[in-house]
Design a protein around this nucleic acid. Structure first.
Lengths: 247, 247
DNA sequence: TCAACGTTTTTTCTCGAGATTTTTGGCTTT
DNA sequence: AAAGCCAAAAATCTCGAGAAAAAACGTTGA
């Protein structure tokens, strides 16, 4: 089967080799937005960015167009591009929708998953556990590794869900959630509670306890929302609106 | 608030004026794919299309990039663009996901909807009824009108749902469904049954009967799936694969 | 007859310059 | 002093040509 260029995450941990300059700029730009290097609401000037990413103006425009449909960038006709704004209401919407979709996906995945899926899940959980140990041990630079492995763990959980569309939508929502998390949590999150939650979800999934797994996963996702919403920066919506308007 | 260029449908029936050439080409191309003028799996050659749509090559590439994230076009690195392939399994996936999201959206919409929403719904249902009468009366050229008003009716139904993300995903899925419908149903569908279903859904929504409305809506969407899957062209998956591979 | 190789042709991808539109700044007027 | 208007400047949007890659084709050899 043909491989989509601008598709989902890849499940394995190997480095992705961009096949084209547009694709490379798209991924680099997406990462910079998710990790907060481009602030929400900030203007994205083509003339300025084409030098930073070392591509032509047309190429960068095409990469920006791809980001528009991921809702990470908004286009204002004849007035250029901006980083998508953020708000607590938006994060709540993202969270609610994600809980609904991820519960359904997990339900299907546990129902369909074979032994190979179990194996992948054991592996993903193990790698995540190791990353969480490093995170607790104050090793710098392990945040990115944790983010990667956390993403892979969640992807593997729903990996046996045979609905491409649900997985596609969840990938979009996951990126949005990650952006909020990385913007708000500048220092590392509390890893101990999160690790326990991951372990409980993992065990319930392996035990094929659908209802319990969904219940735990929903709680896990909502807890992340409440963690972010407790950050002072987000607690007051007025500050957000200021950022969202980009002025 | 700023208006997004590449956003959702507009609820009213007025003509949309594209603010930029990219946006115009994007909408025109999207319509041509949905209405089947570009066959599934067909190659989209930039050199050939830029003349047809009367824009530059770079502009057309940008429009194609926008369509990639709608999953109406797939990009194969260094090998150009193709119209997204179709398959019965994909339609089933679309339908299942759509039923889940649209039920939730309708549930919220009926819960939140005020009198203004009721008014919009009455209006949309009335216009749809008129279009269905014309369709039964064998007036040519009324298929596009029916499609427009059918879309507006479904949009209005879930219009009071306050989740932007659910509405966004539903807009994508609706376009996909419309493509399958228009590819398979070259002659008009049976309007009588469909009209009765619309009327029942409409009445249940106005009566604020959430469970009944969701039940009817789900049946309505699934019935459309079965209608398409009964078409000989779709009944045999082998023919589909041939089209999907585009060779 | 079939397979493999090298050349030709087609198509895609990329870049920089020109035309439009928006924004900014200063000036005049009330 | 505040509001409105005109001009300069910045940024965006668009286009066509050149470079790179992939596909098609014919040829050669076993």
């Amino acid at each position: 089967m043909d491989q989509l260029i601008t598709g989902e995450f890849q499940a394995n941990g190997e480095a992705y080799e961009p096949k084209t300059l547009v694709d490379g700029a798209y991924r680099q730009l997406r990462r910079d937005i998710i990790e907060g290097r481009h602030a929400p609401g900030a203007k994205l000037r083509v003339e300025h960015l084409k030098d930073a990413y070392e591509v032509g103006a047309g190429t960068l425009r095409e990469a920006l167009a791809l980001l528009v449909s991921d809702s990470l960038v908004v286009a204002q006709g004849q007035r250029g591009f901006r980083v998508a704004p953020i708000s607590l209401a938006d994060l709540e919407d993202i969270t609610r929708t994600r809980v609904m979709l991820e519960s359904e996906a997990l339900r299907q995945s546990i129902g369909n998953g074979d032994e190979a899926w179990e194996g992948n899940l054991v592996s993903a959980f193990h790698l995540l556990t190791r990353a969480e140990e490093k995170l607790a041990g104050d090793l710098d630079g392990s945040v990115n590794e944790w983010e990667d492995r956390n993403r892979v763990f969640h992807e593997t959980l729903i990996g046996a869900c045979n609905s491409r569309w649900i997985r596609h939508f969840l990938a979009i929502l996951y990126r949005q959630s990650e952006r909020y998390r990385r913007i708000s949590v500048l220092n590392r999150p509390v890893p101990q509670d999160v690790h326990e939650e991951h372990e409980q979800i993992f065990k319930a999934a392996i035990a094929r306890d659908v209802d319990e797994a969904c219940r735990l996963l929903s709680g896990h996702i909502w807890r992340a929302f409440h963690t972010v919403s407790a950050v002072p920066e987000f607690a007051q919506e007025s500050a957000i609106r200021q950022v969202a308007n980009g002025r």
